[in-house]
Every structure is written in C-alpha cells, then in structure tokens.
Amino acid sequence: MAAADFSRLIAAAADTIAAHAEELTALDQAIGDGDHGLNMKRGFEAVRAEADAFSAKPLPEALKAVGTKLVMTVGGASGPLFGTLFMALGKDLPAAPDRDGLTAAFGKAIEAVAARGKSQVGQKTMLDVLQPVYEALAQGKTAGEIADAADKAAEATVPMKALRGRASFLGERSIGHMDAGARSTALLVRAVAEAIEGN
C-alpha cells in the first residue's frame, strides 16, 4: 500500500470518530462510563498527528504503530482492545495482502481481541461487529456490503444483554442500548471500506 493511501485511511478513521464522538459518548453514558467518544477521539487524533511517519512504514509496521499509539492514548479498556486489533492485524498481515491474506489476518486479530477482553461473540461487544465483518470478508463481499454488514451487526447489539465490561454490571438494564464499542467498530469499518473503495 502506498504511503498516501495509508494516510488517507488514517484520516478517514479519525474523521468518522471525531464526527461521531458525541454520539459514542451518549451511547456509553447509557450503559457504560460515558467516556468512549472522548477517549476514541483523543486516540485517533494522536494517530492522525503521526500519520506521515506511520504511513512511511511498511503496512504491517504501520498497523502496529497505530495499535501501539491507540493503547497509549485512548485509555479505558478500549485502548488495549482497539490497540490489540491493529497490532494483531499488523503482526499477521503480509506487506502486500490480497483478500485471502487480509481475511486470515483479520481472523487472527479478532482472536487476539477476544483474548485481550476475555470475551466472545454474543456478549454485546465490538466482537459482535468484528465477526460478521470477518465473515463478509471471507465470503468475498464488496466494501459497501462489508460496511453494511458492520452497521447491521452494531444494530443487532441493541437487544443483547451485556456480559463483559462496565455495561455487564447493569445486567438486564443493558438491553435496549447499542454497545458503544460495536458502534465505533462499525464506524471504522465503513470509513476504511469507503476509503479503499474510493481508490
């Protein structure tokens, strides 16, 4: 991937997080501790600030650098979780990945996030978006279809009962609210999918 392309992906990701920061915070206020939007915005702005340096690296190294920066700047449990997603992607992605290489690396990255959060699909977390995205990737879906699958998966967390994270303290009362991490994951998937599609 050319440096300019990676830089554009970073900008797209940071833009969508910034544009939806208040919405993410509102979602998190409903069933979490209310800092998700602010935390994610701080992290992705920190990544944006180093976009040139990161983009100059080979793709796997660039992704690891993004992940490390998120770990150090996002805070909360989201920092390690989103950071692990990018770090693990970088670890397993070939320098010039095709669809199969991307799918395999994405699958490994999901496992890493699940291990970090001691969580699994169906517990009202970001994993509930990552898994359908993985399946859409594996089925050869288009970028647009993958983004739609992510949005639908985020919506599908609304009726779920939270079993991990702060929201799990609420038990039944977590039902009826979208998971903030699922929403931010879907936003990132759409931003990246549309930026790649626009090539």
Binding site: V71, P80, G117
Partner: peptide
Amino acid sequence: GGAETNSEM
C-alpha cells in the same frame, strides 16, 4: 475490569 485489561497490556 479496565485496570486488569490495561495491566495485562
């Protein structure tokens, strides 16, 4: 929870 996740990281 977050303290545990961040510590493991």
